[in-house]
Computed example of a mutant assay.
Amino acid sequence: MRLYLTALNPTDAVLEGVLPAAAALGLSATVLTDRPAEWPSDVPVVRCAVRDPSAVVAATAPTRPVALLSNSDHLQEVTAIAARKLGLPGKDPDAARLCKDKAAARRAIAAAGLDLVRTVTIDPGVAPEVPVGMFPAVVKPREGVASEDAYLVADHRELVARVTEIRGRRPDVALVVEEYLAGELRTFETLGDGTTLASLGGWRTNLGPPPTFTEQSLDWSPPAEPVSTRLRARLDALGVGFGACHTEYVISDGRVRLIEVNYRLIGDRMDLILAELLGVPLFEHVIRLHLGEPLAALSLPTAVDRYAQVEYVCADTSGRLVTAPGRLDTVHGDVRLGCRPLRAVGRVAEHTGTNRDYLAVLHAIGPDHATVRHSLAAFRSDLQWTIVE
């Protein structure tokens, strides 16, 4: 039985999550990608125009697949269309499109009477025109990923400067300008089988200084039931309900305000950390849903009696990374600690103020907040990263 996975560049989620999970389930796995040269030689890869649903369907022709899925933000809609053509369980293509298109998602939420966020779309080559009353605002790609090219702007002058900057790198990208939603950034992680949606919990996210929105650390903080209910209503309005989904939101003046919905697992190694925290084979669960199994067949925790904290080590300057710790796993009392490199020693990179500056991710899982924080601080103090300009 063969599983197909659509992907672009290799990621830890695929290499350390999805592929080992497929093997554990007794499935052969093949990666369909338009970048085969970037993948490790031991990964079965087939070259494919993965942004074309017909090409994805054709690539599976040699072997009738039992499942087709993706963990890429960019490929959810294409993969959903291809899965439907193949008669396989999958996400609703319209829901995948809505989640990717931030302006369309805002319209769907507003049409459901759940929330209205003032939003203006700026097409490529068009000068930005935004009402003065919308500032401060956030400008970002309409179909962007995470915090890449997302900036806080105080007025029209700053907006024009940021639009010009982004277009200098990506001239063909459509942008959105949204009113800034103040509040503590949080996440909501879910799994669904198309009928039932389960909450896995969530994180409280600490951001770096504006104008960018770089995640610097996350603390385990599942939403209270009333908040979870309101978030589910917003996901319902988008048609979200199958497989994994990562939702970002704030609570402002008692209101749940959606930031964005990423119709896949949480990223930047948080998916692997979440699996460890929950003590469940999370990636196997995702695959089993795509095999058509019901959510009730999965072993999901009803409560988590552990606490977790995650910290990203960020470069504060441009240059070459010359020294850094490697992959580490250790135990300090009742706390499990880990370090995973995100940038290779010897690599030269520009400082961007975004998650492209990540050097490593550290995490700690233990019995309570205070114990975990103390252990992670001690762990980090013994590690060193050196960049030479």
Rank of each mutant, 00 (worst) to 15 (best):
E178Y: 08
E178I: 08
E179V: 12
A182M: 10
G183K: 02
G183E: 03
L185A: 04
R186N: 03
R186E: 07
R186G: 01
T187L: 02
F188T: 03
E189T: 07
E189R: 06
E189Y: 04
T190N: 01
T190C: 03
L191D: 05
L191V: 01
G192R: 02
G192K: 05
G192H: 00
D193C: 00
D193G: 04
G194H: 04
G194T: 00
T196N: 14
T196Q: 14
T196F: 12
T196L: 14
L197S: 12
L197E: 09
L197C: 07
A198I: 12
A198S: 14
A198L: 10
G202M: 06
W203T: 00
R204A: 07
T205N: 13
T205I: 15
N206V: 15
L207D: 01
G208R: 07
P210F: 10
P211H: 08
T212M: 10
T212E: 05
T212Q: 11
F213C: 02
T214E: 04
E215I: 05
Q216N: 15
Q216C: 15
Q216Y: 14
Q216V: 15
L218Q: 12
L218H: 12
L218G: 08
L218V: 10
D219A: 15
W220M: 07
W220A: 00
S221F: 14
S221R: 13
S221G: 12
A224K: 10
E225I: 14
E225M: 14
P226D: 07
R230H: 09
L231G: 04
R232D: 08
A233H: 15
A233Y: 15
L235P: 01
D236A: 09
A237N: 02
A237W: 01
G239W: 05
G239M: 04
V240N: 03
V240R: 06
G241C: 02
G241H: 02
F242A: 06
G243W: 00
G243K: 01
G243L: 03
A244Y: 09
A244E: 03
C245A: 12
C245Q: 01
H246M: 00
T247N: 04
V250A: 06
V250H: 00
S252G: 09
S252Q: 13
D253R: 13
D253W: 05
G254E: 00
G254F: 02
R255M: 11
L258H: 02
I259W: 01
V261H: 09
V261F: 07
N262M: 07
Y263T: 07
L265E: 01
I266D: 05
I266A: 10
I266R: 04
D268N: 13
R269F: 15
R269P: 10
M270H: 13
M270Q: 14
D271W: 07
L272R: 01
L272W: 04
L272E: 03
L274D: 03
A275M: 04
A275T: 03
L277A: 11
L277Q: 08
L278A: 10
G279E: 05
V280D: 00
P281T: 06
L282T: 06
F283C: 08
E284H: 12
E284G: 13
H285L: 10
V286L: 15
V286S: 12
R288I: 02
L289F: 09
L289K: 10
H290N: 11
L291I: 08
L291T: 06
P294L: 11
P294R: 09
P294M: 09
L295P: 02
L295G: 01
A296F: 11
A297W: 11
L298A: 11
L300S: 03
A303H: 14
V304G: 00
V304L: 06
